[in-house]
Deep mutational scan, measured.
Amino acid sequence: MTSCHIAEEHIQKVAIFGGTHGNELTGVFLVKHWLENGAEIQRTGLEVKPFITNPRAVKKCTRYIDCDLNRIFDLENLGKKMSEDLPYEVRRAQEINHLFGPKDSEDSYDIIFDLHNTTSNMGCTLILEDSRNNFLIQMFHYIKTSLAPLPCYVYLIEHPSLKYATTRSIAKYPVGIEVGPQPQGVLRADILDQMRKMIKHALDFIHHFNEGKEFPPCAIEVYKIIEKVDYPRDENGEIAAIIHPNLQDQDWKPLHPGDPMFLTLDGKTIPLGGDCTVYPVFVNEAAYYEKKEAFAKTTKLTLNAKSIRCCLH
């Protein structure tokens, strides 16, 4: 018999989150649709729960009410004593943790798909938090293969000092899905179709896995975050240069030392320094102006996964 890495157990509980950011409308629209008619997301033997994560922000069509829901799922915020004085999103995070967690427990949901849009030209993107997770690498390989020839990129946010504390991190297997470009507060049919297909293929993978299909060893190309880059700023902290036209919409493309990065209003080009080629992502993302992030630098690498098969009882 072929030796293989056996994944822990079959997958039982899956959640699909929309509206973690209330103005990213593809996930909101799909989740609302699936709450009314969820036939397309159901798979035999699998509990799939669509869920609106930040209903107040969705109602106002804004990213958040008090603070970013997708950055506060750490033990400090989840452990705060519940009171009306807490920011709305912290209270909501505790409610979500109660419903789908608790985080880092045996009772937490197996998989959470968190649906997002970006204003950046990132196409279909899967966000991975753990480079050693054979199950998710296999799932992402399946999704990428199923979507081809449509490109699907994998963004690895594993980093020693950049801690995200994402909404989906309460699950055993957290999956971020990011599709763009799409303006905030807008629905685009092409973007919706791409996100819908990503979810379909992900659920198909889980179904095949649960039925005992063995997935042979595989490898995927990923883009691992190195650092986030702020806009150049003046002495008052105001933005002093904008994304250069040569960099705009060039997510995932190589940016070499000396290539144009920013452009000042008086026409001066600010190039990339250093001696390493990087791959920019979230270029000129609207939501990241407040976070002082013009783009993120990534490096390209390959992740390998062992063969996996479900432990059938």
Rank of each mutant, 00 (worst) to 15 (best):
P181C: 02
V28G: 13
H201W: 01
D68G: 07
F215P: 05
P102H: 09
T20R: 01
Y164W: 12
K200H: 11
L75T: 14
I112T: 01
K32R: 11
F209P: 00
D85Y: 12
I41P: 02
T166C: 10
Y155N: 06
Y153I: 00
P271K: 11
Y279Q: 00
N210S: 06
P280W: 03
L312S: 15
P160N: 12
I199T: 04
G45S: 11
H159N: 14
K292D: 08
E8G: 11
I96F: 05
T26L: 03
A15C: 03
I239V: 11
I16W: 03
P50E: 05
Y142D: 00
G180C: 00
V48P: 06
L192H: 00
I177Y: 06
K13D: 01
I65G: 04
V58T: 12
L25Q: 14
R132K: 14
G274F: 03
D85S: 14
K103D: 09
P217M: 05
V175W: 03
F17K: 00
S146I: 03
Q184H: 15
R233A: 07
F29L: 10
Q194A: 12
R91K: 14
P280D: 05
L255Y: 01
G212S: 01
E227M: 00
T264G: 09
L156H: 05
K228V: 10
P174F: 14
L192S: 07
T119W: 04
P257L: 02
N97D: 12
Y289C: 14
N97K: 11
L99T: 12
Y288L: 15
G185D: 02
N97P: 06
I199G: 01
M195H: 01
D204H: 03
A39W: 10
K81N: 13
Y223I: 04
Y142N: 03
Y223R: 05
G185Y: 05
L126T: 04
M195Y: 04
L78A: 10
N304R: 14
A241M: 00
G45D: 08
I308Y: 01
T299K: 13
E293H: 15
G258Q: 09
W34T: 02
I96K: 06
C311W: 11
Q182T: 13
D68S: 06
K172L: 02
E214H: 09
P280M: 01
M82N: 14
F140D: 04
L69V: 07
R309I: 07
G274I: 02
E214S: 08
P183Y: 02
Y109L: 00
L136A: 01
D190K: 02
N284C: 01
L301M: 14
N23G: 06
T145F: 06
M139G: 02
R91D: 09
P271W: 04
P160I: 07
I111L: 09
T2C: 08
D85V: 12
H208D: 15
I52T: 05
C67I: 12
S105P: 10
I112A: 11
K49E: 09
K144Q: 15
E106T: 13
T145N: 13
A241C: 07
R56G: 13
Y289Q: 15
P102L: 10
F113S: 02
G123W: 00
D251I: 00
N134H: 14
R132W: 01
H10N: 14
L30K: 05
A171M: 02
F51H: 09
H10M: 15
P245K: 00
K81L: 14
Q248H: 05
R132A: 13
S169G: 12
N284L: 01
K49P: 06
T119I: 04
N70Y: 06
Q248K: 05
C61W: 08
G45P: 01
E221F: 06
A93K: 10
L255I: 09
K200Y: 09
P149L: 04
L126Y: 05
H98W: 11
I206E: 01
K300P: 07
Q94M: 13
A287M: 11
A219Q: 14
G101Y: 05
A39P: 06
V281H: 04
T269G: 02
E158P: 06
V278H: 00
K228F: 10
Y223F: 12
A294H: 00
P232A: 04
I157P: 15
A294C: 01
L263K: 07
G237K: 04
V281F: 01
T118S: 12
K297P: 01
A294R: 05
A7C: 09
A219M: 10
P151R: 07
C276S: 14
I127R: 15
E235F: 07
S307M: 09
Y64P: 04
T167M: 11
S161K: 13
I127M: 09
N70R: 08
I226T: 11
P257Q: 01
T118K: 06
I96W: 05
L263V: 09
R56Y: 12
A241N: 03
E36N: 12
P102T: 09
R92D: 06
G176V: 13
I143F: 05
G185Q: 05
I177D: 03
E84S: 14
H141K: 08
L192N: 02
L126H: 04
F262T: 04
A240Q: 11
Q248M: 12
C310D: 05
I239D: 04
P102G: 10
E89T: 02
Q138M: 00
A148D: 13
I112V: 14
P174C: 15
I191K: 03
N37I: 01
P160G: 11
Y173Q: 08
C4P: 15
D249H: 06
D104F: 13
D114R: 03
S131T: 08
E158M: 02
H33E: 15
I226Y: 08
W34D: 04
N37T: 07
R168H: 09
Y109F: 12
V48K: 03
D259R: 01
D114S: 08
E106D: 13
G180P: 03
E221Q: 07
I143Q: 02
S105C: 12
F51N: 03
S105A: 13
D193F: 14
H116F: 09
L265E: 01
E9Q: 14
A171C: 14
L69N: 06
S146D: 05
A240C: 15
S105D: 12
L75M: 14
V31Y: 06
L78E: 11
N70I: 03
K60D: 13
S307H: 08
H244I: 05
M82V: 13
I143V: 09
L147H: 00
D110W: 04
D251G: 05
F282K: 14
A57F: 05
